[in-house]
Design a protein around this nucleic acid. Structure first.
Lengths: 236, 236
DNA sequence: GTCTATAATATGATAGAC
DNA sequence: GTCTATCATATTATAGAC
């Protein structure tokens, strides 16, 4: 049915843990501790990365821990040592995602020229769609399913952030620097148009034959969106 | 984890099948046949409807046949009598979805005034987002997951349809009736901005406090999108 | 921290009576 | 066509050795 990732046998390159020679000190040195911590962190990170990619493609229920473990090159039991259960893994992926996701909007500020601010924002968001499509997809999926996990911790900060930027946009409009558009809808349109190229990538590819990975198509897309949002399609 | 639909015991209102009295004719009359066929069709339809709603919220793997059966008020075994297996049910839901989905774009034609055509298209698509959010979500999910099932039968007709409309838009541009925008990106933006209000409904509600079900918000949204797409935000 | 079982469960699907 | 079992399997999660 839904395209499933192959569960290939995990490559066993088990990073040769050079065993401690008999009689050597049991208490690890500070640098050894550091190495160990770095190792643990990098393992957690690779599990999270694998989980992000799989969850964003096949959904929470469409992805098994076995598949995540295989892609992260650890055993399933080992994965469950790092993340107590599937839900904990999933929420950790979401939490990490949010940091990347709410970043770009922060930049909007009254001091900027609105035309430049919108131009820049479109570029940054389109770069996110190109470079972090998995994050875009998972965010979309989670929101579509009612954001059962994100909503609680997302709603308030998102609402506040957006209200803040709505005020900025309104200031621009009042100053005559921007046409009188309802600020919320401008923000939604900026999100929708840019994220579309990540979330509907296969449709874009089916229709246009290209994706944002093609540099020329990226520039063409950016210019088109900037022109559309700034000047519309009605001839002047 | 992901918000799950409650598996409540199905209401057993088993539509009192008045049993045929002994000795009555075994061969059903034409009208009885009709009634039977209508009954079967309405049962199939209610199963498909339940499946659409659940699949669009929780995904294929996040929805069990038990949940679909419960929501459609049939037994799981009975459901499997109508649809041989889960995949068959899912593909039937998708096939039905496509009919609704590709309809509106057909309308675009060279004879129209482009400004009116775009106005109308935005309205129709926004009405779809309001009245058929489940279809919008499921389409989005399927495309995001790579459209493993849709792609085969969607790619060619979608590509042809879009190419046709791209030509229409190009004609308008060449006639000076529309600003010179890359037609593909205009189409993507029309899709993205309108579908956003269905697929990101909970985010829209979290941020703006309203949904398209609110008539005033619907009109405000429509006017905003029409103004944005037609004239942009740069003051004239 | 990592492994090999293995328990516990959910769920898709079938058999066979009526 | 609809029902009551029941099977078969996938998958989450744990126990316990090393």
């Amino acid at each position: 049915m839904t395209d499933q990732p192959p569960v290939s046998p995990r490559k066993r390159l088990t990073a040769s843990k050079t065993p401690r020679p008999k009689g050597a000190a049991r208490v690890p040195s500070a640098s050894a501790q550091d190495r160990r911590l770095r190792m643990i962190e990098s393992k957690r990170a690779s599990i999270l990365q694998a989980a992000l990619e799989l969850f964003s493609r096949f959904g929470l229920h469409g992805t098994s821990l076995d598949q995540v473990a295989t892609q992260a090159d650890v055993s399933k039991t080992n994965l469950l040592y790092y993340f107590g259960n599937k839900e904990e893994l999933y929420t950790n992926v979401l939490r990490q995602l949010l940091e990347v996701w709410l970043q770009p909007l922060q930049a909007f500020s009254v001091e900027q020229d609105p035309v430049e601010a919108i131009r820049d924002y479109l570029r940054v968001k389109l770069e996110l769609s190109r470079d972090h499509p998995a994050e875009s997809r998972l965010f979309c999926m989670e929101i579509m399913q009612g954001a059962p996990l994100l909503l609680g911790e997302l709603q308030q900060p998102l609402h506040d952030l957006v209200e803040n930027k709505v005020a900025v946009i309104q200031t621009w409009i009042d100053a005559g620097k921007l046409a009188p558009i309802a600020p919320h809808h401008l923000i939604f349109s900026l999100w929708a148009t840019t994220q579309h190229y990540a979330d509907f990538r296969v449709q874009v590819e089916a229709v246009a034959g290209k994706t944002l990975d093609d540099p020329a198509f990226f520039e063409e897309t950016l210019k088109s969106l900037q022109a559309l949002i700034l000047d519309g399609v009605r001839p002047r």
